[in-house]
Simulated assay, not measured.
Amino acid sequence: MPDRTIDFGKFGARGVKAHEAVSHQLDQLAGFITSPITTRRGLLARLHYLTRSNHARQAAHTAGLTVTDRTLKAWLQGKRNPTKKNLQRIETAYHTLRRQNVARYLLTRLNRNGQGTRVEIHPLNQSHVPRPHQRTLQHRTLNVRHWNRIIDAWTRTDTQALDNAWINDAATHLGSSWGQYDYVTTIGFAA
């Protein structure tokens, strides 16, 4: 294993796991509803998204939102409000369905008929690390041509599979220093 970070943050470095940064960037590309679910507008937008078709209703049910049509109608009309537990189920169901719906589009957009997408990797923040313990890290770019496993793991919200897919399909193309980019500040796509 080439120089992977084992005790991250021990000397004051700051950053996130690379696969978490990738997931965050894919979430940005997916275009989730920005209004918080705690507002009336955010709640209604999510409920309409989850009830607009039979497929959406089934996905919501699979994600754990198992309320009656009567309760759902009361929520939509504003006569009743969901409990905190149901708000979390609505949010989970919405994110699950949205990821499933945009996965094919993102896969096409990122793969670009085999040309791939340029990825910028910004190394971890070492500004609080004492000078003798700092690594020499630089901004890196690479072209990721195969996004299938990455998008599949992101769609399923499987963090371990996403980490493995990111390492095998992208990070190892950085050469022998890929382990130094296990934690990063941000990752950006030119998509």
Rank of each mutant, 00 (worst) to 15 (best):
G175M: 12
T159L: 14
F189L: 09
S127Y: 04
E91A: 10
T34G: 01
A18D: 02
A170N: 05
H128Y: 00
L76I: 11
Q138I: 06
W147P: 01
R140K: 13
L97H: 13
D158F: 00
P82K: 11
T92P: 01
D3P: 01
R4C: 12
P123Y: 04
Q126F: 03
R98I: 00
T62S: 15
T38E: 14
L137N: 08
T172W: 02
D3R: 12
W178K: 03
H139R: 13
T62F: 11
S53L: 05
K84G: 14
R80N: 14
Q58S: 12
V129W: 02
R89D: 14
S35Q: 15
A13N: 02
Y183N: 05
W75D: 09
N81E: 14
G179N: 04
A170D: 11
L44Y: 04
T83S: 15
T38H: 07
R98A: 08
R140M: 10
H139N: 10
W166I: 13
Q115G: 06
R109L: 11
Q100A: 14
W178T: 08
S176Y: 07
T51Q: 09
L110S: 03
K84Y: 05
Q88Y: 05
P130S: 11
L107N: 08
A59V: 06
T51G: 05
S53Q: 07
T96M: 06
Q28K: 04
Q100L: 11
P132I: 09
V16K: 11
R41S: 12
E91Y: 03
D152G: 01
L107D: 00
A191Y: 10
L110T: 03
T108D: 10
Q160M: 13
Q88K: 15
D27A: 10
L110Q: 03
V144N: 06
L50I: 04
Y94D: 10
N54E: 15
H19E: 07
R99Y: 04
M1E: 12
W75F: 12
N54K: 15
G64Y: 06
L65C: 09
L162D: 01
A18S: 10
R52F: 08
T136C: 05
N54T: 15
R118S: 09
V184Y: 02
Q88A: 15
G42F: 02
T51E: 08
P130E: 09
L50Q: 02
Y94S: 06
T96R: 13
P132L: 08
L124C: 05
N125D: 15
A21S: 09
V16M: 06
V184E: 01
W154F: 02
N168P: 03
H61A: 15
D152L: 03
R46M: 07
P82R: 07
R98T: 07
Y181G: 05
H139F: 13
S23R: 06
Q77R: 14
M1R: 11
R14K: 10
T108F: 02
E20N: 06
T38A: 10
G175F: 07
V67K: 07
R156P: 00
T71Y: 05
H19Y: 08
G175A: 08
A153I: 03
T96N: 12
R89S: 15
Q88T: 14
K17W: 06
R109C: 00
Q126T: 07
N54Q: 15
V184T: 03
K84Q: 13
P82H: 09
N125Y: 05
P82E: 10
A103G: 06
R118L: 14
A170Y: 07
R149Q: 14
L137K: 07
T141G: 04
D69W: 06
N111C: 03
M1H: 12
N111P: 01
S35Y: 08
T5K: 09
S35A: 15
L124G: 04
